[in-house]
Design a protein around this nucleic acid. Sequence first.
DNA 1: CTGTTACTGAAAATCTTTTTCAATTGCGAG
DNA 2: CTCGCAATTGAAAAAGATTTTCAGTAACAG
Lengths: 145, 145
Amino acid sequence: MATSFEILVQQFRVQGHKLTQPRRAILRTLLATPKPLSPAEIQERGQKLYGDLGLVTVYRTLELMETMGVLRAVHLADGCHGYALATPGHTHHVVCECCHGVVEIVGCDLGHFLDRVAEATGYTITGHWLEIAGICPACQSRQAD
Amino acid sequence: MATSFEILVQQFRVQGHKLTQPRRAILRTLLATPKPLSPAEIQERGQKLYGDLGLVTVYRTLELMETMGVLRAVHLADGCHGYALATPGHTHHVVCECCHGVVEIVGCDLGHFLDRVAEATGYTITGHWLEIAGICPACQSRQAD
DNA sequence: CTGTTACTGAAAATCTTTTTCAATTGCGAG
DNA sequence: CTCGCAATTGAAAAAGATTTTCAGTAACAG
């Protein structure tokens, strides 16, 4: 279930936020890519949709969307601060080390594992975050040459 | 199995790096804390052991240790860029949302899960990274008041 | 001990992110 | 449909974080 523009727009409305041109451009940019983008990349791509898009606005919108729960920060091995839309429901990312493409894994089997962790540590588990690194099929065959 | 100063020193030697005063101070600092520290915090604490410790050196040493495989970056929910010693073997962190204390989970059950991911996505899985957020027993009882 | 080379700290350069502020724009009330 | 207010915007500046440069220093092999 991919997030659509309409659903995002809906979320903005419901949560009482205005739907401005810059924000639309950011939404469309995020929707158009399968991999996490940095704020700077979002600005760059977003400017093709709305020429004046400022980096400051990108930061602010990303922050807003994160609080809204429709965006998720992806921490890549090399740096941090990539952002990708949150698929409703619980997901994890597999990031290709080579092309940085991302696949989301829907459905998460970690419940059992986490129960064990809770038991072992005494912690109340409130959330978790898994990033998997790998090499995507396309890059694999490219390397096979 | 906690990492000891001697083991770290050993690693530096084996991998052909010099063991300078500043580096010793950084090692001791990392060994002395149970939670991930930012570069600035490491400098601050390290200066109690070696007064001249420069922030630049902290950055360089952290980078070096990460390549050596004895240090691991911990990406916290609030920011990024915390560093903690890597326990030999495969571990994951449970970070307390409240006091930011960290427990490492030794032994990792994710193999099965990852096999399934590999099958589903076609990716060759090369690594993974799990951070778990929770509330530690101490903070739980503090909140219970 | 001594020479070589890896390391170091300070300063400067770069980047990234946040704040400030006046101007603009979305959108609901009329 | 128009108006007006509050949310939002972009630019510039400030604040922070990280990296680079460089001349001096210290570790350690011989």
